[in-house]
Simulated assay, not measured.
Amino acid sequence: MVAPVTVARAQGLFNLAGGLWPLLSLRTFERVYGPKTDDWLQKTSAGLLAVSGMSMLRTAATAEGVRAARRTGVGTAVTLLAVDVVYVPRGRISPAYLMDAAKEIAWLTAWFKAGRLSRNGYGTGGHGAEERGAGDRGVVGAGADDRGAGDRRAVGAGAEDRGAEGQVASHASDPRLLDVYLNDHLAGASSGAALMRRAARAHRGSPLGPQLEELAEEVRQDRASLRGTMSALGVRRRPSRAALGLVLERAGRLKLNGRVFSRSPLSDVVELEAMRLGVEGKEACWRSLRTLARTDPRLDPVRLDFLIHRARRQARALESMRASCVPHALTTR
């Protein structure tokens, strides 16, 4: 896994180069991304991007430095990605900007993968882990010396018997993982709610319309339930994750499914499949929380049982709609 400080400096170099390009050679930039109406506006945005990149390139290898770079990097990537996926379909900017959209998704993915390191330390490439490891070895060694050779052999044998299972249990007991888990599901809920609303609008006036509108309202309520659960557990919501989910949902609209100027029948099948998968993931989240409710009084088992039942009903309804759309969209002849 790449350290967060490395991601910050790499994205900084990328943004610095991207910002300097139109400043140094607007003509070659326009050959790739199309002509610009207002050169001054392009150069202004390029200058801001270059300054942002220069700041990230100088990210300090400290916890605060990485947090600041993460905010800048994720914010920049989400903003540029949103512009690309909104204005390319409208014909306001060149389709070449879809290449930039793919790059911004790559940076967001890199930050997402590096997020765990930034929460565990600076992300400077393992120095923090080495220091912690040395400290842990010192404590274990001192304790072993006090216990004597016999105890050391017993401890060693116990560690060997536990093996990988003990390591998994140790990692699973980290309470910070619940933060990651629930924020990931909240991002998925935001994306799923947006997709459900769009599908309901697309089918307004059709037999599927009322069902999708009802499901869209239920999904909205489910997302509110997840937010309430996170508040009850003291899990802080991370808006950048939810924003990423919405941006990726918009990016999915660029898939044409065989049609350019009208909605493809295949879109109905693909979107209903995506919604069903999302609902099944949501059910898994409720079931995980239901397991935790056995020992955590902050979680309401009755409410979670209701949410699990509702998710299963939603999945059955979506599957029924998907099956009804398949004959209209697909054929073997």
Rank of each mutant, 00 (worst) to 15 (best):
G150R: 13
R152S: 09
G205C: 12
A159P: 00
A154H: 06
L208E: 08
L178G: 01
D184K: 14
M196F: 15
Q211E: 11
H203E: 14
R197C: 01
L195D: 05
S191Q: 15
M196Y: 12
G158A: 14
E160T: 09
E213F: 04
G148L: 13
R153N: 04
G188W: 11
E214A: 06
L177Q: 10
L178Y: 03
E217L: 10
R153T: 02
Q167D: 11
R198C: 00
D179R: 08
H171S: 10
E213N: 00
G156C: 02
P210G: 00
Q167I: 07
N183W: 13
E218Y: 10
A172Q: 09
Q221H: 07
P210C: 04
S170I: 01
A194W: 14
A200T: 05
P207W: 15
M196H: 10
E218M: 09
R147A: 13
A164W: 10
A187T: 06
G158C: 02
D179C: 01
Q167R: 12
E218D: 10
A187E: 05
L178R: 09
S191N: 06
G209N: 05
R147Q: 11
A154Y: 03
S173H: 04
Q211D: 08
L208S: 09
A216D: 06
A189Q: 10
R162W: 09
L208W: 05
G156V: 02
